[in-house]
C-alpha cells in the first residue's frame, strides 16, 4: 500500500489552508502534528475525499483517488474531528447504518459490529441511543465506525479528544497493533498520542509541511537545546521573557523549568534528553504560551 500526496494545495478564497505539500506513506502509523489552523484537518479531509484539492493529486498505488472514487472510499476509514451522530439511533443501529454505507453485507456487518463494540468497550450500551452518550463514548463509536470495513488506510482526526487517560492508552495500543498491514494517519496536537507509536511524524505549520521524519531523527535535531533550570518562583517571568519555557515543575520552594534554547540559559542549567513535546514547542511556541513572548 502506497499513498502519495503530490503538490497538493487547498485554497479557501485567498487563504492557503494547504500550501503545496508533497509526501508519501507506506504501512505504519504517521502522526500529523500541528497547532490549530495549521491545515491538519484540511489535509485529512482531502485524504478522506470529503473535500478536493485546489491543485495537485493524491494517489494510492499510483492511481488518482478521485478517479478511483467509490473503490478508494472502500479502502478508507475516516474519523472526522467533530463527529455528528443521529441522536435517535442506538449504537447498534448507527453502526449497522454505516456498515450499509460501506457496503458490508448484513452478515458481515453483524459479526464486525460485535467485534468492534467489544473492542471499544461499548458492548453494554449497544442498545442505548447515541444521543445519551458522553463525549468519550461518542468518540469511541466514531472509532468503531472507522474500522468497520477493515480499512487499508485509516484517517483519524484528533481521535483522542474527549477520551480519558485509560481510553487513550487503549486507543494508542489499538492503533499500534493494527498498523502492520495498513496506513494509519493520525492528527493531533497532543504529543504523547504519537510519541511511541509513530513511524514518522509530520509537522505542519500554516499549511506547509515543515518536516516528515521519524521521531528519533527529529529529536536528534533539537538535541543539545533542551535544558533544565532550577530556580526561584519569582524568576519564572524573566525566563519566560527570554526563552521558550516548557514544563514547569514545582517542588517545595524551588521550581524546575524546562527550557528550549540554542545557548545555555544559565550557568546552572543542565542539558537533558529532548522529547516530542519539546519538539512541538520548538516549532509552535507561539501557540503554547499565554503571555507575550519576546525572542
Amino acid at each position: 500500500m502506497n499513498l502519495a500526496i503530490e503538490h497538493v494545495t487547498k485554497k479557501y478564497g485567498n487563504h492557503h489552508a494547504i500550501d503545496d505539500i508533497s509526501c508519501e506513506f507506506s504501512n505504519g502509523v504517521y502522526g500529523i502534528l500541528g497547532a490549530n489552523g495549521s491545515g491538519k484537518t484540511t489535509l485529512m479531509r482531502m485524504l478522506a475525499t470529503v473535500t478536493t484539492p485546489t491543485a495537485g493529486i493524491i494517489r494510492v498505488n499510483g492511481k488518482n483517488i478521485l478517479s478511483l472514487g467509490d473503490d478508494y472510499r472502500d479502502m478508507i476509514g475516516y474519523l472526522p474531528q467533530h463527529i455528528g451522530l443521529y441522536k435517535n439511533f442506538t449504537a447498534d443501529k448507527f453502526l449497522h447504518y454505516i456498515a450499509a454505507l460501506k457496503g458490508l453485507s448484513k452478515k458481515e456487518a453483524a459479526l464486525k459490529i460485535e467485534e468492534l463494540l467489544d473492542l471499544v468497550n461499548l458492548m453494554d450500551v449497544r442498545k442505548k441511543k447515541v444521543g445519551t452518550f458522553s463525549g468519550g463514548m461518542k468518540q469511541r463509536i466514531g472509532i468503531a465506525q472507522a474500522l468497520l470495513n477493515d480499512p487499508k488506510i485509516l484517517i483519524v482526526d484528533e481521535p483522542t479528544a474527549g477520551l480519558d487517560p485509560k481510553e487513550r492508552i487503549r486507543f494508542r495500543n489499538l492503533l499500534s497493533s493494527i498498523s502492520g498491514e495498513r496506513i494509519v494517519l493520525l492528527s493531533t496536537h497532543i504529543v504523547s498520542d504519537i510519541e511511541f507509536i509513530a513511524k514518522e511524524v509530520l509537522i505542519l505549520k500554516n499549511g506547509r509541511l515543515l518536516h516528515k521524519r521519524n521521531p528519533q531523527e527529529l529529536l536528534h535535531e533539537i538535541a543539545g537545546k533542551v535544558w533544565l533550570v532550577t530556580t526561584a518562583e519569582s524568576e519564572i517571568p524573566r525566563y519566560q521573557d527570554m526563552f521558550k519555557v516548557g514544563n514547569i515543575v514545582r517542588s517545595e520552594s524551588r521550581v524546575e523549568l524546562r527550557i528550549i534554547s540554542d545557548d545555555r540559559p544559565s550557568l546552572a542549567a543542565i542539558l537533558t534528553t529532548p522529547n516530542l513535546e519539546d519538539l512541538y514547542l520548538y516549532f509552535f511556541e507561539e501557540d503554547f504560551d499565554a503571555g507575550p513572548v519576546k525572542v
Partner: peptide
C-alpha cells in the same frame, strides 16, 4: 455528511 461523503456508497 462527513461519514456519508467518505464512505463507499
Amino acid at each position: 455528511d462527513q461519514f456519508l461523503l467518505s464512505s463507499k456508497y
